[in-house]
């Protein structure tokens, strides 16, 4: 009996803790938005963050995009060949990339490359009392540290997703047209006939922006909330990658359900 009560109490405690943490995270996110104005006045800080989360993620994004596109073309060709419609390879590669793989895989890579870096950086700034020092100098750390990182990363994300998709389509072209020998004209023209700017490309961009906001908000909060010890920071970094990956996939389902319902 007491064991059962203990179990129920454990569940209750977890729920209360979880809800409380969600509340803290929401408040943190709202504060970040509130102080964004001050963040934008220090635009060079945003530029610096675009460098560390955008430019430094370029290599992994471009190389992964290329390979994902090449694999898509190889696999897609095998399947399409059975139905004798190899010309649709361009459609398959471009729609998969622009609608799903571009935003999702780029965001997953972004979470593990830039998100974890943000968490570790902010966690260490807390652990070494840099955040506290800033507060003691009457500088709001959310305006000075958090908001510029938030906007820098959110601006980088759609560019990275677009580069991933473009690179993937190029990879698909390399394998499909150059290597396998699918007709170049029908590769591009079928692609252009099937891919709509608003329905596919713009929705893909919207997805990547949403993912960017989610990943960055999670990374910043985990870093800010991390216990100021080496162990605390490393656990927070892991949690950032896990939580934001789950958030990306969950949000992707919701967004896809809304965006491509009628098609």
């Amino acid at each position: 009996m007491t064991a059962l009560i203990e179990v129920i109490r454990g569940i209750g405690r977890r729920v209360v803790d979880g809800v409380w943490r969600m509340g803290v995270a929401t408040r943190f996110f709202l504060l970040t938005l509130l102080y964004s104005g001050q963040g934008f006045r220090r635009f060079h800080l945003i530029v610096r963050e675009i460098y560390s989360s955008g430019v430094l993620s370029l290599i992994i994004i471009l190389v992964s995009g290329l390979f994902v596109g090449m694999v898509l073309a190889l696999q897609g060709y095998e399947t399409l060949q059975t139905y004798g419609s190899e010309e649709a390879l361009g459609v398959l590669v471009s729609l998969s990339l622009v609608r799903e793989l571009g935003p999702v895989v780029a965001a997953l890579l972004f979470a593990s490359r830039a998100g974890s870096a943000i968490t570790a950086e902010i966690g260490l700034m807390r652990a070494t009392e840099q955040i506290a020092a800033m507060e003691m100098m009457a500088v709001n750390p959310i305006a000075r540290v958090v908001a510029p990182r938030f906007w820098g990363a959110v601006i980088s994300m759609p560019f990275l997703a677009a580069l991933f998709s473009a690179m993937g389509i190029f990879g698909g072209y390399l394998v499909g047209v150059v290597l396998i020998g699918v007709d170049e004209g029908s590769f591009w023209s079928q692609m252009q006939a099937a891919v709509d700017f608003r329905e596919d490309i713009l929705n893909g961009v919207i997805k990547s922006v949403v993912f960017g906001v989610a990943v960055t908000a999670i990374a910043l909060f985990e870093g800010y909330d991390a216990p100021p010890t080496a162990e605390g920071v490393s656990r927070a970094t892991t949690r950032t990658v896990v939580t934001s990956s789950l958030a990306i996939l969950g949000l992707d389902f919701v967004l896809t359900a809304f965006m491509f319902r009628g098609v």
């Binding site: 260490l124 700034m125 070494t128 009392e129 840099q130 506290a132 020092a133 507060e135 003691m136 100098m137 009457a138 709001n140």
Partner: peptide
């Protein structure tokens, strides 16, 4: 008010807390 007061305060942290 606190921030206004803190501009007239300096604090030296245990290990300096320099911005790395």
């Amino acid at each position: 008010g606190l921030y206004a007061l803190r501009r007239r305060m300096g604090m030296l942290f245990q290990f300096g807390a320099l911005f790395t």
